[in-house]
Design a binder for these strands. Sequence first.
DNA 1: CTGAAAGCGCTAACAC
DNA 2: GTGTTAGCGCTTTCAG
Lengths: 333, 333
Amino acid sequence: MNIYDIAELAGVSIATVSRVVNDSPMVSEKTKRRVRKVMEENNYTPNVFARGLGLDSMKTVGLMCPNVADAYMARAVAYLEQNLKEYGYDCILYCSGYDDEERRVAVNSILQKRIDALVLIGSSYAEDDEDSEKVEYIREAAKQVPVFMMNGCIRGENIYCALCNDFQAAHMAVTELIQTGKEDILFLSDSHSYSANQKLKGYQQALRDAGMPVNEKLCVYAENRIDRVRDLLLSRNDLMFDAVFATEDGLAIGALKYAKKRNLSVPRDISIIGYNNSELSVCCDPELSTVDSRGERLCKIIIDSMMLRLKNREIRSKVYANGFLVRRETTDF
Amino acid sequence: MNIYDIAELAGVSIATVSRVVNDSPMVSEKTKRRVRKVMEENNYTPNVFARGLGLDSMKTVGLMCPNVADAYMARAVAYLEQNLKEYGYDCILYCSGYDDEERRVAVNSILQKRIDALVLIGSSYAEDDEDSEKVEYIREAAKQVPVFMMNGCIRGENIYCALCNDFQAAHMAVTELIQTGKEDILFLSDSHSYSANQKLKGYQQALRDAGMPVNEKLCVYAENRIDRVRDLLLSRNDLMFDAVFATEDGLAIGALKYAKKRNLSVPRDISIIGYNNSELSVCCDPELSTVDSRGERLCKIIIDSMMLRLKNREIRSKVYANGFLVRRETTDF
DNA sequence: CTGAAAGCGCTAACAC
DNA sequence: GTGTTAGCGCTTTCAG
């Protein structure tokens, strides 16, 4: 059943049918009704390919992230998909992995689908060094479609970024720790992404602002796996700390497991703050204080800007949201 | 840059270019090389829409689930996407929500994208009553594309199901509980899906097989939210139980929180078993014994069958995988 | 082994 | 308001 069939059955031309499909105002209500009736009776739906060919768009946006199995990204994808759908856009999903070459390939593949916009989810798409050659493929992509980065930041034409102000959030969280009397605060991270580095800077600045020393040794990196983190901390007898600021909830829980193994009381002997306010943070015991990094807010910003951008309106190329601390049992307050 | 440009530059006809693109054997290696060179030099990629129009396929599969933010579904989506990509298929993602009407709409929307296959993730797509009118829209969809159900089961032409043998898994888990001397085992669930009902039957059968009574009161349903479950159990003073078999890890953790609040020792006073072997199960304290419901295995089965099916081979319409118990601290063993 | 040409189903400019 | 028609870029007979 195609447009010709409908046209014939309705006794009009295909142009008219097309107009009805696109709800053009230049068709009389009467014919519209008639054509619509035929379409419904025959359960007609326009062929998306033909439509795409003509319009060079299929109303699809590409969603790309290193790994949807990650809770943070999954939440973002869920939110974006949900809302994009309401604007009539479908999503094609692409998990790129964390490897640079894989990513380049992934972006090129997804571009071939003639998506209307691309959103890159997660801070791993941007190294700290904004001008790195490594992200040239993203600038290249932006020549074809508008690129939206969630928690990443690359300066460039047609690239739009929405980020949590990680510096501010980390500063706030660490300051909180300091105020409860903690003196040796461990910075625990699993990455050197732009975002992770912002958190590090916030951590360091908070210490300086409080007139405390910044001990390089207290900055440790570990794979984001609970058992690994626990074992690593257990093995580092050289480290003395009475608080942990982790850049991911998973890391924080690793620290919690470490504390338990060491028979340390939380938060008395050791306070812990995580990041992302994920489901994990309420599973553990005691429950984890954590920074809410405003995932939903960022998604919303991205969708709103995208819709404006697709109408060729001017939009801001960089928007921040402030994180806030969710206080639970792993900190005093 | 389209097929005509390439044809001209390579000094051949568009038909030949098309053949090269599709790696047809009826082109001499020599011309193939020449054409390929031109394509690469000009960075040519065929227009997917035009291609779709001709082939009536864009090598895309539709992935549908109620909610990707759910860890189980996110993992499934991640796995499927990853592997489908290797076969040259892209994924369009559609989160349908849990409402019946939404689902119907979702399936129809996704079908309009002319996907090559549809996979329905999660047991919520199938009610226990296999012949329910409610799932007619799925049978309807199967008339257009092969439908693959992960953990759902509907009998029908062109519908293929891969499921965890939840009956067996539940039976095994509950039997384990019984063997450690537990007598009042609570069945805790959040749904009446096909899958949830299989678990219930497994639970009941295990009790019967052990010559124990099946107490209807010990079968409770709650929303899958840690705090809700905890509060619900706290409020049910009429319930006496020394073990919990939960159909989701989240529910089990709710029970764990309940135990803690009540100052019950786990697993001595109360043993707990969850379901899905999710990340949550190792976050909590003590760590959760849980049924591994073989998500990856099911995904793999689905992909393998899909590839066969798309080559018009015969495949089995229903395949089971057996679950197994991951023993951790919430049970004795 | 290669080329010419007829679609695929729709949009949009143009004519009436 | 409505119809005619020329594309959109590719696949696929059918000839040669």
